[in-house]
Amino acid sequence: MFHPLRVSEVERLTDDAVAVTFAVPPELREAYRHVPGQHLALRRGVRGEEIRRTYSICAPAVEAPGEPVLRVGIRLVEGGAFSTYAFKELAVGDTVDVMEPMGRFVLPPRAGHFAAIVGGSGITPVLSIAATLLAREPEARFCLIRSDRSAASTMFLEETADLKDRYPERFQLVTVLSREEQQSGLPSGRLDRERLSGLLPALLPVADIDGWLLCGPFGLVQGAERALHGLGVDRGRIHQEIFHVDAAPAPAAPAAAPAPAHATLTATLDGRSGNWPVREGESLLETVLRARADAPYACKGGVCGTCRAFLVKGEVRMERNFALEPEETEAGYVLACQSHPATGEVELDFDR
């Protein structure tokens, strides 16, 4: 559900990134009390078209009865309809439609040793996760391995330095710049699979890490995941969130059967069910949206996971999947924005 929230602060982080903070009125505090790692979908209209973009909450989670801090980091994307607006026009006092927090790339605070590999704006959810974890759980340790183009392009530089100063024995920070040499630390260059395979065992007791968080561009996350698998890390300890995909890789899975000439979708959303014919070429999300404007979605690119639904009946073909963990797809969950019917009848449940 969306609510209009007032912008309380716009902070310039780098030459191409800002942090935007929204004020939460008392009656909406519980609705916006996020779990560290969750994201917000922001909505605006441009020339009669609705635009939605998803941004992770970078502020630590606040327990009740405190006021939730809704702060997101937004990096300017060339030609980006929302990021350009946020970077160049958005000001304190403006109102933005903000969806309630969502997302499963989360780490509720608990004891243990955790590590994250992030690239660029992938720092945003991990910053919230690390800050909340270290503040609430004295038996937790966290290692942050971050990759950025240059020092000038590094988002939340002061915030991560503050964590290092505040928790010197429990927070380890490793910075790699891909296009700039550092006076100290690791040599410049990309964090690809080969480099991570040699670097990680030198930094951490890889086998003893309780959870790995991978966040950022598709190439970095894929390389990190393959490096960890090569080092013997079980997939159940690896959690990932893709922030950007340069090109469409191969489909998530081959079609189980040719697309039916006529298909019908039954969907349950917020306790109400409906039944509609699926038009040729449209996704199941598009089918639902024709009748239910409140159907959940943000990116429509198979990245954010906002449109996750449980496949109750039938079979579907998913074109792309960068949001669901293997355990979720095995349990029967699909991305409605990427799903097309492979049987004449399909049923989805958005409420599970």
Rank of each mutant, 00 (worst) to 15 (best):
C143S: 15
L144P: 14
S150D: 09
F142P: 09
E137Y: 02
C143W: 03
L134T: 08
E159F: 05
T154P: 08
S150E: 10
R136P: 05
A140N: 07
T160K: 01
A152G: 11
F142V: 04
S147N: 04
M155K: 04
T160N: 11
L133W: 05
E137P: 13
F142K: 03
A161C: 10
E137I: 02
P138W: 00
T132H: 06
S147C: 12
A135K: 15
M155Q: 13
E139C: 08
L144N: 13
E159I: 05
A140R: 02
A152S: 15
R149C: 08
A152D: 14
A152C: 08
D162K: 08
M155G: 11
L133A: 06
M155L: 13
C143N: 08
R146Q: 15
A140T: 08
A130T: 08
L134F: 01
A151L: 03
A131V: 07
R149D: 11
T154W: 01
R141C: 08
T132A: 06
L133E: 11
R141D: 10
E139S: 13
E158P: 10
C143L: 11
D162V: 08
D148K: 01
R146E: 13
L134W: 00
R149F: 00
L157Y: 03
E159P: 03
L133H: 07
I129H: 06
D162W: 07
A130C: 12
R146P: 08
E158Y: 14
E137G: 15
L157F: 02
A151I: 05
L144S: 14
R149Q: 11
I145F: 00
I145C: 03
R149L: 04
T154G: 12
P138N: 06
L144W: 00
